[in-house]
Structures are given as C-alpha cells and as structure tokens.
Amino acid sequence: MAIITISHQYGSGGETVGREVAVRLGFELITPERVSEIISERYQLDYSLKGEISHTPRERESGKLFSRLISAVLADMALLNHLVILECGGQFIFRSFPNALHVRITAPREARARHVMQAESVSMEDALHKVEKQDRSHHRFLRSTFRCSSEIPEHYDLTINTASLGISQVTELVLAAARAKKVETYGMVSNETVERLKLRNQIRLQRTLTTLSLEHNPALNQFAHPSELFFSRLMDFYGIRWEYEPRTFPLRFDEEGNILEAFSPDFYLPDSDLYVELTTMKQSLVTRKNRKVRMLRERYPEIKIQLLYQKDLEDLIFKYTARKLVNPGEVS
C-alpha cells in the first residue's frame, strides 16, 4: 500500500506528471473521475468530487460524510494496490500515513494560462478566466469536503514549480523523492495488518453508507438518530416486535415531588419484556447514558434494560460478513 499523492494547480501539468509517475512505478493511477465512478457504480450515490460549496448544516454534514466515504474508498484501493492519487484530497486522507509521499505541483497563474491556451486553443483571456474558475472550484471542493486549503505548504513533502521545468524533469524529481522516502519499501505491510485495516475500513465504510442513505429517508423523522431506524429495521427483519420510546421513567424528584430528571429508553421489546437504549460513538453521550441506565436499574429494579453500544450494532452487521468490501445491495 505505497501511496504518492499529487495535488496540482490547473494548467500546471501535474496531471501529466501523475500519469507518468504511475506508469514508471507500475502504481495504479487514481483520479477524481475514477473515485466518482466507483462511488456511483458500487454505492449508487451521485457525488462529483468537484462538489459545490455547502451552505446549510445538513449539506456541510453531507460533505463530512462524503469525505469519509472518499477516505474509505481510497483506503480500500490502497489495500489492493500501490497508488498514485491525483487530487481527491489524498494529501489529507493519508496525512498520518507515515510513508506516503505528498507532492504539490504548482506554477504562476500566467504560466498556467499560457499552457491552457496552447493545449485547448483558446485566447489568453479565456485561459486566464478558466484557470481562475478551476482554482476557485478546487478550493471549494477541499473546503467543503475536507475543511482544508491546498495552499498550506506543511501538507506536502515536496512542492514543485513547473514554470521553468519540463514534465520529464518534474517526473524525475517526484521519482527521486519517492526513492528517497522509500515509499515502495515501506508500502509493503504484513497480511495481518492488511486484514485488520480491511476490517476497520469495512466498518467505517458501512457506517458512512448507512448514515448517508438514511439522511433523506422520511422514516428517519420518527427517530432521533439513524441508528434507531437501523435497529428498528433489524428487529423487523428478525420478526421481533418493538415499540419506540413507549415509556418515560422519572429518575429524580425535588422536595415537592416535581420530576427533575427522567429517562425514555429508545425501544421496548414486549416479547422479551426488555427496554433497549442505543448509544453512539460519542464518549460524553455514552457516559451520560450509562449513568441514566444505572439510575433506572437502581430505582426500578424490576425493569430489564439493555444498553447497546456502537460496537454491538457493528457486530450485528459484520459477524457473518465475508472478508471483503461488500457493495450494498449486493450479496456478500
């Protein structure tokens, strides 16, 4: 899983360099178009990596989810092949991956416009306009999806200005940097590590897909959280009757008998006479819910309640899943 990420300014020749580096090293080339294709084909989600700026909190939330989805897709591909990743926010996704090489390819605005003018046979004015438009669009994508700017030098191991260097020279520089950083050597990881990463990646991907697909589901309105809808569907599949928040248990009272604190467990399973409370990944919420469940057990010892953690739900999802990424809608 050796990784070279190449972020480039439009018209700087970075895309050609990326292709050349991939061919020379025998790495797989990943472009934004390829990632969009995979997301669309495998997950039936329409998302362009040239996304527009997000305005509403929900759209911003979607951007965050898509960054997780892109991360999971790229991480999955990295487990199969050595990669050269053009754009796609690869420099942010693999920022903490110690032996990835992050390259930024840049050039002055006028030099890039000249390149576009020649390559696309347009006027200098049109080329300049195009360069500026692409720069804005790219900036928006990174900001809305990764909350980052591509202009921060610390994000890169190597920044190359192509204004006075040819494509072959720039390619040689990137290849030399890859050799110096021993990208390929350290990209070899044990099968055990690959297996562990696959499992973790699969969980992350499935969780993101579930949340994304539930986001616009009207049935979600009944529930406070997607995991609750997910749980209700699971119960339906297993033929287990359920009620949603049917009862509120007062937990604390003031001296006049007014309720100070109460607790409404998420589900009641009448056949098992059992209440179920779901928790999320947020530790602060887990701690709060643990406390409420403890208080409920102390005050109502006859009531049976089960706290289900995120991991329990993941176990339900993955216990019998084959060790490969499963496309939703497709049998594993």
């Binding site: 579930t210 539930l214 739900l313 993955f318 216990k319």
Partner: peptide, 15 residues
Amino acid sequence: GIESFSPGRALPGVV
C-alpha cells in the same frame, strides 16, 4: 452457513 447481506443500503446486518 450464515452470511450477512444488505437488501438495501438502509439495512445492513441481516442474515
């Protein structure tokens, strides 16, 4: 033998 499958994106985890 049991395997998980997803009849739709909204419902992973059934067998």
